[in-house]
Design a protein around this nucleic acid. Structure first.
Lengths: 141, 141
DNA sequence: TTAATTCCTACCAATTTAGTAGGATATGCA
DNA sequence: TGCATATCCTACTAAATTGGTAGGAATTAA
């Protein structure tokens, strides 16, 4: 399951995706409309920024903007930044790989299954973007 | 990611799948060959038993056996018993559903995406079984 | 009756999660 | 220059989860 932090990250990115092209958006505004605790949201946005997903501007008129268009932000990347691995086992993770001891990777049956599961999940999460996520929501907000 | 407990559960079930049809297998034996802490394994096997996946027999000659053939045990069920939800959000879980507040389920874009991801993952995890997992391992052990 | 085995209740330390607090730093504007 | 407005940084906290361990009770075979 995704942590609440990750869910908040998606909610924040949704808002920024909808506001994309309209200039910097303040943390306080995102916090208010997406109902995310302000100080917690600060942490999240800094992480997304450090990962290269957002740009920020301090001072009056400042705030956050997406660094690339919503259609170029896929869901897998967001999850990796805030939540961590997508795979079900460390030894089948593409971005957070860790060898599991007591296990021959060439023969391990569990590993084979989890690779298949991972690929199925990734095919969706790497294809779908923030643009897909906000489809149908643009008018509502 | 799956907890270590869940990984141990799979390892234990692998062993029981390989030994399927040969009578009860002792915890100590599974613990030894799959390198799982004995007392921790006890907990795991009781949980799997209470969920209906195993049968047990106490006393001399006792132990655990799979209640159904390996090909009838799908991976999704094992994960649900020991690890919990497979979906990435509570509000898209089939077996552990929880409503998320501040979210209209009919329009929520995040929810739509996570349902697609869930279905992709489940198509694999519900189709693959313990029999698939031990393929190619039977001779090794 | 005894040895072997599962089963039950309870506990524990370390880590992770979900935040909060308080101030430092940078920016725009008058 | 100085003030208001923002982000940014460091640190702390309580509660939950994870990954076990301890000790003995209950059951069964011989």
């Amino acid at each position: 399951m995704l942590s609440k932090k990750t869910q908040y990250a998606f909610k924040a990115l949704e808002y920024l995706a909808i506001e994309y092209g309209k200039g910097p958006v303040k943390i306080a505004e995102i916090s208010k409309y997406q109902k995310i605790p302000l100080k917690f949201l600060e942490n999240i946005l800094v992480e997304l920024k450090n990962a290269g997903m957002l740009e920020s501007k301090k001072g009056k008129g400042g705030g956050y903007v997406l660094r690339v268009a919503p259609r170029n932000i896929n869901l897998a990347n967001v999850i990796r930044i805030i939540n961590g691995p997508i795979a079900l086992l460390p030894c089948v993770s593409l971005n957070f790989y860790e060898k599991c001891k007591d296990c021959d990777e060439t023969t391990c049956g569990m590993r084979k299954m989890m690779i298949i599961a991972r690929d199925a999940t990734l095919r969706v999460l790497e294809k779908k973007t923030m643009a897909d996520m906000i489809k149908g929501e643009i008018d509502v907000m």
